[in-house]
């Protein structure tokens, strides 16, 4: 029975994540605009933009770009599908890393100075958040005794109870993953930075559309990861999870609008400190509790 649910969940993700992701992107833009005192675009604007991007003429700088970006998209969908199918968290995270590598490669093959610098920054970003991501997987193992995502549904209490530090650490690096200030170094939603559009500078038309789509899939996956901390076998945990996800998402938008962009050394240093203190500390405490009791 569970296999049916898992398969349905994977299918639902593959089909519905673009809609959810696009809608969240639209809400993000509207909310950011209101926080800035503007009216903002219509809620469905990201869909109009995506449709426009797919209709545009492709100006590919290099013949390998399409292959790289397509691989990136496919891998991201794979990540999310594996995650929502309840598979091994470590597998999920490493597939995500592979996807990001394709993204970086897609930028590097263009030989553009902006894209290359953006790719370099993207790699530094990965360096900043990878430890925390891995610690999250380890944390789940230490809390639930299993790396498999589906196993959270069999626990009595949500993982947040045992992993508050890991959760905080994850929240910190989520800002990097969502590409929001203060950590929107490699590319951001606004092209008002020294790298023009950074990693995505040389993508246009269909390529840019695929990248946007991939980002929506990725965002849905990341929010699912947040929800994972709040689900358990209890029926109300689902509602709790949705509430937590919305709160976290709102906080991300608020933080985006209340901080400046920092430089890469700040990002790296602060991410590792948070990883060590919150993530590492949490796991250390868990280990100590396990040894004592």
């Amino acid at each position: 029975m569970i296999y049916l649910y898992r398969t349905l969940s994977m299918l639902a993700y593959v089909l519905l994540a673009p809609l959810v992701g696009g809608f969240l992107a639209g809400l993000d833009r509207k909310l950011s605009a209101r926080m800035q005192g503007r009216m903002g675009p219509p809620l469905l604007q990201p869909f109009y933009d995506l449709a426009k991007l797919f209709k545009k003429q492709v100006l590919a700088v290099s013949r390998y770009q399409f292959m790289m970006v397509a691989s990136f998209l496919a891998m991201v969908i794979g990540t999310g599908a594996l995650f929502f199918g309840g598979f091994d968290l470590l597998l999920v995270f490493f597939v995500l890393t592979t996807a990001c590598m394709f993204f970086v490669l897609a930028a590097t093959v263009t030989n553009s100075p902006y894209a290359e610098l953006g790719a370099q920054r993207e790699l530094i970003q990965m360096l900043s958040y990878e430890p925390m991501i891995l610690l999250t997987a380890v944390g789940f193992y230490m809390a639930n005794g299993s790396f498999r995502g589906v196993d959270v549904f069999y626990t009595d209490e949500p993982a947040i109870v045992r992993l508050p530090g890991v959760f905080l650490g994850l929240l910190f690096i989520l800002t990097i993953k969502f590409r929001k200030s203060p950590f929107d170094l490699s590319t951001s939603h606004h092209a008002h930075q020294e790298l023009v559009k950074g990693v995505t500078t040389e993508f246009s038309g269909v390529l840019m559309g695929m990248v946007e789509l991939a980002h929506w899939y990725e965002n849905v996956f990341l929010l699912g990861l947040v929800a994972l901390f709040f689900v358990s076998s209890a029926w109300w945990s689902g509602l709790l999870a949705v509430g937590a996800v919305l709160l976290v998402w709102f906080l991300e938008v608020l933080i985006d609008n209340t901080s400046a962009r920092v430089k890469w050394n700040h990002m790296l240093r602060s991410a590792w400190i948070v990883t060590a203190v919150c993530g590492g500390g949490n796991l250390l405490v868990l280990e100590i509790i396990r040894m004592l009791f």
Binding site: S32, Q36, S181, D184, S188, Q193, T258, A260, R261
Partner: peptide, 13 residues
């Protein structure tokens, strides 16, 4: 200046 260091909300304000 705010825009240059990525703080659009401050720029608008």
């Amino acid at each position: 200046l705010a825009d240059a260091f990525g703080f659009e909300a401050l720029f608008m304000q």
